[in-house]
Amino acid sequence: MSDNGTPTTPVKTTGLHVGEPAPGVKKVDPIIVADGVKRTFGGLTAVDVAHVEIPRGAITALIGPNGAGKTTFFNLLTGFDKPDEGKWEFDGRSLAHVPAYRVARMGLIRTFQLTKALGLLTVLDNMKLGAKQQTGENLFRSVLPFLWRKQEEEIEEKAKEILTRFKLDAKQEDYAASLSGGQRKLLEMARALMSDPTLVMLDEPMAGVNPALTQSLLDHILDLKSQGMTVLFVEHDMHMVRHIADWVIVMAEGKIVAEGDPHEVMSDPAVIDAYLGAHHDADLGDSDDEHVHAMKELIDDEQ
């Protein structure tokens, strides 16, 4: 627990890659390997990833400008969307044509950019829903409470423990709809932990969270790593990325354009191009002849 109020400097995991950091670089111990994953929407190629490996036991950030295909890539990895082609595997098992719920059962749990707290369920029920392999979730066994009561109590105990850790225990009997946006993000992350995942994928965990909660959310993400989980997250907040990420993957226009250590990758010219446009330092005057002529004529007229 790093929840002692003062921001701690996270311990960065290093030595994740083999060879020079470049797009698609080989990792020492990859948990996800994707090859030639491509997804098009009509004429638009949303994702076209030649090769990427996500390192195990580390926090990896997936960054990129809006429309870079980060969320689509997330959806492809978790079975919420199907790619046109390509193969990708999680922990050595192929994920191609595996439906989303099976992906989750394998231990790859995701959260959503727009928080999906189940509003008219209590916070505690939201948590309990996250537990895996529940006997009472079978229709025929659900009518016989003695079959699932014991497991239910264990799940409830675990849920309360995690809620206490996330400081949501006072809210456990409230509807999730009554929580604030930041609390819902916390709840979603806490709910993901109920299934003891090996890989947690967070889609913009900081979006819409007030600054007071940011530090606590960061600590919880770091906590996931210290408990042995792998984290992959999409984020726009560069400060946060630099602070907690061990590895950064940069996407632009559906492709992976750079990979590396958070400090080095930020100075990579490909990254600057991706965010500011490839010709951000070129002289705009050349390509804008007509405006220049129009301006000159206006000035001439005035004289």
Partner: peptide
């Protein structure tokens, strides 16, 4: 727990699928 899953689906089926 079966009813809990069912009510979860009413609220947001993608969230339940992700679990």
């Amino acid at each position: 727990p079966w009813g809990r899953v069912i009510k979860g689906i009413r609220e947001d089926e993608d969230a339940v699928r992700a679990l």
